[in-house]
Simulated scan of single mutants.
Amino acid sequence: MSEAIEQFFAAVPVRAPEVLHASPSGTLRIDLSDGHRTEHWLVRMWWGGAEVSRGSEGADAVWYCSFGLFERLITGRTQALAALFRNESTYAGSVILFLSFRRFFPAAPGTRDPREVAREQVRRAR
């Protein structure tokens, strides 16, 4: 397991108040695998908060992902929803929990909010 993944999960509870606005409550289990071993992470989410632990107990949703893909997600090199559509990972359970959790991932390097781009164009036109 990489130190980057450890740091990411350690930061989830700290970042939860800024990330989880009006999100549903529930537990997401993330199963990270390299083919030979699997690590289980439990993320309990509620409005404005989250708790992370390890364990393979039941959850409202389960996301199966490789270590390599997860490292690309936490560095912004790929997007979680796109990875699901490409069948690079699988998901079962409450989709709302996945959509809420993916907010913890950074945007791709160089990505800008389209609203900010539009505001800049309006300012230039004046």
Rank of each mutant, 00 (worst) to 15 (best):
L97N: 12
D113P: 00
M1A: 11
P13K: 02
S2L: 00
P13Y: 01
M45K: 06
A22E: 03
G76W: 04
S53A: 14
F9D: 13
Y91E: 02
F67D: 03
R15T: 05
V43H: 06
A107N: 11
R15F: 00
I74E: 06
A16D: 06
T75V: 03
A92E: 15
V62F: 05
V14P: 00
W41Q: 05
A108Y: 08
P17D: 15
V52R: 12
P17W: 13
S94E: 15
P24D: 15
R112V: 14
P24C: 12
H36F: 09
W41M: 07
A125G: 01
S89L: 14
H36W: 09
F98V: 03
A92Q: 15
A92V: 09
L81G: 01
L20M: 06
G110E: 12
E18R: 15
R29W: 10
W41N: 05
I74D: 08
A61G: 05
D113N: 10
D113R: 06
S89K: 02
V52G: 06
M1Y: 09
S33L: 02
R126G: 10
A83L: 01
R102V: 12
T90V: 00
P13C: 05
S100F: 00
E18K: 15
G49V: 00
E51K: 05
G49F: 01
A22Q: 03
R103S: 14
L69H: 02
E71A: 04
W47R: 11
S25E: 15
G48P: 03
L32Y: 06
V19Y: 02
R112I: 09
T75N: 11
P106D: 07
A10M: 08
R86A: 10
A4G: 12
S33R: 05
W41C: 01
V52L: 07
A16V: 02
L73D: 03
V19Q: 08
F104A: 01
W46Q: 14
P17L: 13
R119P: 00
R123T: 11
A92K: 11
N87K: 05
A61I: 07
A108P: 03
